[in-house]
């Protein structure tokens, strides 16, 4: 038991650290990608290629003056970003980072918690994240903040619905809610039953999922809650110092988690092609798998940024129409067709 605990603790720490690190460097990456797209250099002062920029930003966040407006509700004002941050971190708990590693006869799973309702857990935690935004916006007692918060909430819950529906077709194929099992299913290798990545069977589902993921993370082209031109800073207009940092950070962590989720659900997770045919040591395969997983995540993160600097922002009615009137019916149709095909094939 105690080894189990220690191992889990180590894993928790590792995942926590990696999450923060990835989030931090996503900010750097974002600026670099933006610069690349716009034919600029981007941050290059702090360290080589500006590689220490995120650290500098972090320090700045720490040292800034903390302003809590007079008219705000102080307690909720502080609670808001905390919730956003905690939920963002918590969502990563059920992601299978890799397959098992066997050391000295003991098998260790590279996943913090393999619970049988992994997908539901993610949805649950992400929903709580809405509270962080809503509470923050409301507590600020500022019209911009409130409007931003309301917009954010409306948008997030709308797309959560579509997201939930789009996943159902996937679950019909896999028959489980455990993320680890879903990942394992896609690793059968060529010739066996479930060898393909799910994206092959569920292209429409994946498309919808990724659109929803953009909206969930309030990323361009769906970043209306914080659209600077209209609402100053959206729900975090009044925030400063590390509290603002938490909101921004949470967004990047969410992006990371979404990417991980997409990779797990649709792109084979920690599996990579021909992994079983190379005749490598299982532990090595696991490690390579983890690397592959992070590569996939990296691709999606890049994709997020790529889209951000490519597409213009939606209008609010377009956004809601897309969510409610296109994605939801489409997702339902997807479920029906998947079911039909599956029954017919059998």
């Amino acid at each position: 038991m105690s080894t189990f605990l220690i191992y889990k603790l180590a894993l928790v720490l590792a995942v926590f650290g990696i999450t923060l690190l990835v989030a931090m460097y996503s900010t750097y990456l974002e600026r670099k990608v933006a610069a690349f797209m716009q034919d600029r250099v981007g941050p290059d002062r702090a360290g080589p290629f500006g590689i220490l920029q995120p650290l500098a930003d972090g320090v700045k966040m720490f040292m800034k003056e903390e302003i809590i407006p007079n008219v705000s509700n102080k307690f909720l004002f502080i609670v808001g970003p905390c919730i956003a941050m905690i939920t963002a971190i918590m969502a990563g708990v059920v992601i299978p980072w890799g397959n098992t590693i066997t050391i000295g006869g003991e098998t260790y799973t590279l996943q913090i918690a393999d619970i049988n309702i992994g997908i539901l857990y993610v949805f649950g935690v992400v929903s709580i994240g809405v509270y962080g935004i809503m509470i923050g916006g409301w507590a600020s007692n500022n019209k911009y903040s409130l409007l931003g918060a309301i917009r954010a909430s409306a948008q997030m819950i709308s797309y959560e619905l579509a997201m939930g529906l789009s996943i159902i077709a996937l679950i019909m194929l896999t028959g489980t809610l455990s993320l680890r099992e879903i990942a394992l299913m896609q690793g059968g290798g060529v010739g066996s039953d479930w060898n393909m990545w799910n994206v092959v069977y569920q292209p429409v589902g994946f498309l919808m999922f990724i659109i929803c993921a953009f909206a969930e993370c309030n990323r361009m082209p769906f970043d209306l809650p914080e659209s600077e031109t209209e609402l100053v800073g959206g729900y975090h207009t009044e925030y400063s110092s590390m509290k603002l940092g938490f909101y921004l950070f949470a967004e990047y962590i969410n992006m990371f988690t979404s990417s991980a989720l997409m990779a797990t659900l649709y792109f084979g997770g920690f599996n990579f092609p021909f992994q079983n045919d190379l005749g490598l040591d299982p532990n090595l395969v696991t490690i390579l798998g983890t690397v592959a997983f992070f590569l996939k995540i990296g691709f999606f993160i890049f994709f997020f940024m790529w889209v951000r600097w490519t597409l213009p922002r939606f209008r609010y009615d377009q956004l809601m129409n897309l969510g409610w009137k296109i994605l939801i019916p489409l997702a339902i149709a997807n479920v029906a067709i998947t079911g039909l095909v599956k029954i017919l094939v059998k």
Partner: peptide, 22 residues
Amino acid sequence: YLPIGLMFLLAAGFVAVTMVVT
């Protein structure tokens, strides 16, 4: 579910400490 609890403690602790420190 225990690891989830661990993670929560860690996250909450981190957030709280950061808040106090800033």
